[in-house]
Design a protein around this nucleic acid. Structure first.
Lengths: 173, 173, 173, 173
DNA sequence: CATGAATGAGAATTCATTCAT
DNA sequence: CATGAATGAATTCTCATTCAT
């Protein structure tokens, strides 16, 4: 059984994702979660604390996705996996990631912590694949990654499968 | 001399861009603009009206950028121009476009009006350039475009010149 | 052709009657009257001034109704006329009188000026009709008068014609 | 000891009665009640909610008065009681009932719920008393009732005792 | 006489947060 | 751990009124 703390976090995530952070009051969270408003502050001290917990969740989920890179043996497979990540996000997680991306744009400073890790791995991959300017190529893929995420999360493309294929083809995958 | 209406709009734009829409109160706008708070509502009827006026401004600026495409004679030049747009945004306009992108992620529906126009033009360009699947290639560039915007507006501006070169090179430009 | 002052007064009357005094803003009056907001204050100095003008109108209309009493020769005819006044108000004037009655209930002090005049006349009438306690009977009719007004203006009686008959019958009219 | 909710309601009643609904701000209520303004909305959600609560109170008080009718054994006693109700209202409740009557005139729809019940009982009474047209006579008393209320609540209290006697006498009571 | 931009004081309402129980 | 009454500052918005033109 889920703890009340977990229920609060899940509910906040749900509402933040659906309505946005500022548009979601702690009162609504408490009501939908079926707990008292005070309990939110006991567990997360702040409304900001709630948001941080969610962003932490985002980091973990991101981390988990990136950790899978190592499961693939060849650089080719790794690159193929990476380029497919945005398209593989299950629909039920879309609003979650949309929330995190929206926060990126609102926040004063972009948190590059996780993404820089991905960047490092991409450099390695391109080295193995014999690319000339590996850092630059990695930067390009990072940029492409944001483009893919934007496309997947914000637009209603029917031809996403084909775009995905095109991207892979551009890297001979 | 600027009308008070214009001053309000400029101030709102400035504050929305710096602090975000919800975090900016009409009181702050009025104070910084040096007008009474009531005047904001007389001219824009809503806080939302203020935002809409700004988004209209974004459409116009976007439109202006896209209209320049026709100034170039060859498809090659046109594509080169398009691929450089995000990198050419003057720094003083960064916060403006950052605001508009942030709104995209917050709003319930992504306004594809202008961007779809760009999409159409890209299809034309790729036809002229003899690409096989022109629609798909156009979609890819659109995706790339969002990636470039994200990179330019959110990330550190280190190797952007080089990325720009790389992108052009990938299209033999 | 009506002067702008008259148009303003008519419009104010219409809106006050329909929506109530406080719920009607001078902006709405100006808009519906097709004049500038400033003009209202030039002509009536206050929003209260507008209301006073309307109440003055009410006094005049009331006065006019009461003046007709003298047109009847016999006390009987006069009483019959008085008892029928509330029922004779044309429907298009209902909202006007409803407004005036509503104001009576809101105002701090009931303005008895006109009604006291009616009271005096009633006493005369009852004297002529040979009633014992004429003052008291007049007071009773005054009370009845308010009851009739309330009935006519607030309730949707289908049997108003019959009530009217009953009242007349009670005074052998 | 009274709950803060009750204190708020009492204060609102007091101020609404004295100054009117629209002229009384929630800030004033909060101040006089010695509570925070927010608490008003937590308990009554709306300023309207506050008013509804008061009108509910009016219904209950009215109901209580009408319920007493059954306590009298004969139709005569019942009618006498009814005809005296408006005159029996204690002075300290005058502003309360004045408020409710004022609302009747302002509201878009006259709430006939309770009064229709009284109407039904009057018909019964007149049947027992052997009146010919009982419905009509009941309607007349209802009208008289409003007249009495207007007289008691709005006008000077000079000869009210005598008017009361006169009314009773007209029904041989 | 007439306009309408501009004001500034309040209005109702929301909301994150605290605290006694 | 958990509640929910209570707070008070902030927020959007309205409105009567003024005044330069």
């Amino acid at each position: 059984m889920k703890s009340k703390k977990e229920i609060i976090l899940d509910t906040a995530l749900d509402l933040f994702a659906k309505k946005g952070y500022t548009a979601t009051s702690t009162a609504k969270i408490a009501k939908q979660a079926g707990v008292s408003e005070g309990l939110i502050f006991r567990h997360f001290s702040n409304k900001d604390g709630l948001l941080n917990a969610i962003m932490e969740l985002g980091k973990e989920k991101g981390q988990a996705l990136f950790n899978l890179i190592q499961e693939f043996d060849t650089a080719k497979d790794q690159l193929r996996y990476i380029l497919q990540i945005p398209f593989q996000i299950p629909i039920e997680e879309h609003s979650f990631w949309k929330l995190l991306y929206a926060l990126k744009w609102q926040a004063d400073s972009y948190d590059e912590e996780i993404s820089s890790q991905l960047s490092v791995e991409l450099v390695e991959i391109f080295k193995k694949l014999g690319y000339e300017n590996c850092e630059l190529e990695a930067s390009y893929v990072m940029l492409l990654f944001d483009g893919m995420a934007t496309s997947v999360l914000l637009k209603s493309h029917k031809d996403q499968k084909e775009i995905q294929q095109l991207i892979l083809k551009k890297y001979n995958l």
